[in-house]
Design a protein around this nucleic acid. Structure first.
Lengths: 333, 333
DNA sequence: CTGTTAGCGCATTCAA
DNA sequence: TTGAATGCGCTAACAG
């Protein structure tokens, strides 16, 4: 009545070989005579033997599972990265332990510790920022880690990103070309997110190039939620702003709808550029113009990079910058 | 240079106790004198000892991790369930191994096998249908399983759902009350999805009550994607249809936008009711009226149920039906 | 209340 | 090419 437990011993006995031999064929060790290999394989099939990954993990000190720290699976940006991560992980025979962190520092540390206790072979971290405490913990644990869509301002940890500064600059420049002077930059708190700094730099740079004075009143720090975006429309309108670059799709959609509710004609009287190109941006009317990072690829490349590090392969560049595009759709002229 | 490995032996030695005692305090066994407990705790803290979950899993035959089979994390419906699952799992000290299945039968079986080899304590399955082969594999493995947002037509596996039939019926009834005669029912393939049958029953029932003849031409089987929904608008319009119940939010948004692109006034000339109440439904203009299953709760309750089964607690009802609502928004009058 | 002793299922030397 | 022996780090009886 209990769970069946066919072990390596059982197949060794049935096949009249030692467990070492069974272990060899299971692990694809070439030093096995074809005949005995076949015999063992037959018995494995007959007994429906399935190697116990836990025992294997204890003996080999490799679990073939990686921990994935994600702010929230329900956020399409991160979910898209996660999809790329999982696909490549599967390709390389790894499994994913997924843990939501809510960007909460305390929870992140906690999650990291349980991942480490589970002996994951590596960690993929997603979030807006890698806090020093977290990085310290990770470095101390000597567990390979790669950041996906997340910047490490100190450049000590491997990561995969796009050039946020240049992308933002290009977006703002486009708005300037379209004749806008008062362009809002909508971002989460500047206090603790690194990529935000880069993006802000891009924003400033574009203004500088066009010789437009930077006005910090046009930088709006809001929670990156649909509701916050929606509520923001009113403020932007009152401030005489006519265009905005928003660093999150949900917030951008919110803003767009907020403008719609105010009877503003987009893009005629107001232009919006978002930043993630998640599915959402194609589901609005008008469709959202957006910076388009290769979401799936960021996750995929990050996972691939992690496999290399876990494998102790030579890494030429641990800070990968992927190309982005800007998808010009209907919220810009 | 290698990864530090502080074991239970190390702390036992430092604390001048046996490893059994250390094990006891780590596991909260009350049979330890407070004084020695404190001593051990101090050493643990000092050495920064972290129990090896793999060794623990091998010795105890419990891994405190559950496998989650999900069609696609990138689908907000399933991602929302997953969020509920993860939160409750965390609460009960379980971790989640997430595996995307793409609804692909072959991949599901494969994924199931790797989950079983990792000795997960239980499995949470999400998908449109549980195929007999998959169920057979799971039952054979004797691993506890719960279906979240998925029906088992044979009622042998535990599950958490809403009453899809009644919900659909109510939605269709509303459209009938609003004067519609030609109401489309948009669904994925009827061939292999059980909940679809239930929903279709609800659709038929509503028509029957209103003495409207059922016309199978009004049942549209399409892939549940945004694009398919968008493309569907044209067909519905040509068929003289004036309202639709769509079983997926992305498809519903697609349809809505397709109608918009055809210049159709929703809800004046066409009404739409969707089925999941994911974030998407609030992001469209007009906002989508939708059946509202308690997404997060379905996941949460499913995970809670799984913990009970894994714990061999008495289960009064293994088929849980959660209440739903219908959110009347702007795509209906 | 605490220590001793066996394994858990497998990978991995080392011999043969 | 194969087998025997050892141990990965911990839990779980069983004594004491």
């Amino acid at each position: 009545m209990e769970k069946q437990t066919i072990t390596i011993y059982d197949v060794a006995r049935e096949a009249n070989v030692s467990m070492a031999t069974v272990s060899r064929v299971v692990n694809g060790n070439p030093n096995v005579k074809p005949a005995t290999r076949k015999k063992v394989l037959d018995v494995i099939d007959e007994l429906d033997y399935r190697p116990n990954a836990v025992a294997r993990g204890l003996a080999s000190k490799k679990t073939t599972t990686v921990g994935v720290i994600i702010p929230d699976v329900t956020n399409l940006y991160f979910a898209s990265l996660a999809r790329g991560i999982d696909d490549i992980a599967t390709m390389y025979k790894y499994n994913i332990i997924l843990a939501n962190s809510d960007q909460n520092n305390h929870k992140e540390i906690q999650v990291l510790n349980t991942l480490l206790s589970k002996q994951v072979d590596g960690i993929l971290y997603m979030g807006n920022n890698l806090t020093p405490e977290l990085r310290a913990e990770i470095v101390r644990s000597k567990t390979p880690i790669v950041l996906a869509g997340t910047i490490d301002s100190d450049h000590v940890v491997a990561s995969v990103n796009i050039d946020y500064k240049v992308a933002t600059q290009e977006a703002v420049q486009k708005l300037i070309e379209n004749g806008h002077k008062k362009i809002a930059f909508v971002t989460p708190s500047l206090k603790n997110t690194f990529a935000t700094d880069l993006r802000l730099d891009g924003y400033k740079e574009a203004l500088a190039v066009a010789k437009i004075d930077y006005n910090e009143k046009f930088v709006y720090e809001i929670p990156l939620t649909y509701q916050a975006g929606e509520a923001l429309a009113d403020k932007l309108l009152h401030a005489g702003i006519t265009a905005a670059v928003v660093t999150d799709d949900e917030a951008a959609v919110g803003l767009l709808n907020g403008l719609y509710d105010h009877g503003v004609n987009v893009p005629k009287d107001f232009e919006v550029i978002s930043s993630h190109n998640s599915k959402l941006t194609k589901m609005t009317r008008p469709t959202l113009t957006t910076i388009a990072p290769p979401l799936y690829d960021i996750g995929a490349v990050a996972m691939r990079l992690l496999t290399k590090i876990m494998n102790k392969e030579e890494i030429v560049d641990a800070e990968i910058t992927l190309p982005y595009k800007i998808e010009y759709r209907q919220t810009t002229k």
